[in-house]
Amino acid sequence: MSEAGRVPTLLEVHDLEVSFNTEDGVVRAVDGVGLELKSDEVLAVVGESGSGKSVTALTMMGLTRGPNASISGTAHFEGTELIGASDEELRRVRGNRMSMIFQDPMSSLNPVYRVGAQIVEQIRAHRDVSATEARQRAVELLDAVGIPDPGIRVDAYPHELSGGMRQRAMIAMALSLDPSLLIADEPTTALDVTIQAQLIELLRKLNEERDLSIVLITHDIGVVAEIADRVAVMYAGRIVEQGTLDEVFYDPQHPYTWGLLGSLTRIDRPRPDRLPQIPGMPPSLLEPPVGCHFRPRCPHAFDRCQSVPDLNTRLPEAPAHFDRCFLSPEQKRERREVGDGT
């Protein structure tokens, strides 16, 4: 761990809380999230719909601000405090030092402008370059993300590209100003599995060759296993477990993580008779359960779970592995049916 100390921290989020006033009451979408991202790292934030993973990312980009939102906590990125930053400050960072891509590339691209023009617009909004130079840069970017005939495709409209190509174009745009951080929110969910594999490969290449740090938001554990260095598992607005990829996969500490890992199907293993399932369903964030949010669905819950467990390190041998569960490490090892290299 002494080595890790030397790698600078790029992004540091502490006690992030985001709630929204709605007609039905206050929805606490993010409930005290803390994250740390080192340079060159890929951090996967995993969770189901409504777990707060996207809201966390959108809040860092300043995209959840609104009259009905209340946001507290801190998010430090390259010396800028993002929470509470002025629009002016955010504009300098957004698209420039950190950029974001979304699940559906068709609805993130403007359908009436050519792809190249949209990239040029972003470059020229931040840099003092001529239109010709910016266009040349756009062609290079399209080439770098693996779009064939970039000189021709630069003049294509979004609808003329396939889903995978559109997502590549979105990545090209996100990279146009050479940011240090890319937030990718379910970037492959809308795509076919063969295209997904190509895009994961592209993200990995960008991470390795351009030293691009990535926060990957996904519900797909398979994708996480392919690319992440560290993993944060979110459930009902809170991080329930955080650790390196191998720690979370082979020594999972939280019963929710056990459930997630257990319910996976694997095509390279004999199939089980029955797919292990997590009983019940995620709680409503209007009225979340008292104490641990996973308690009502947890087969291992006991009276202590009525209070909220801290996100703590509980394993002396793994000081960077955090979880929110009161069970002792021995109990966890006894009770879980996943992990341990299986």
Binding site: V193, T194, Q196, A197, I200, D220, I221, G222, V223, V224, A225, E226, L245, D246, F249, Y250, L261, L264, R266, I267, D268, G341
Partner: peptide
């Protein structure tokens, strides 16, 4: 089909399925 796919397309499809096992990957 999953263990010994014969058709090249099936092989391609299966090899693209992410495996939720970091060591295996």
């Amino acid at each position: 089909i999953c263990e010994q796919p014969r058709d090249p397309y099936t092989q391609q499809l299966l090899s693209a399925v992410p495996i939720p096992d970091p060591r295996e990957n």
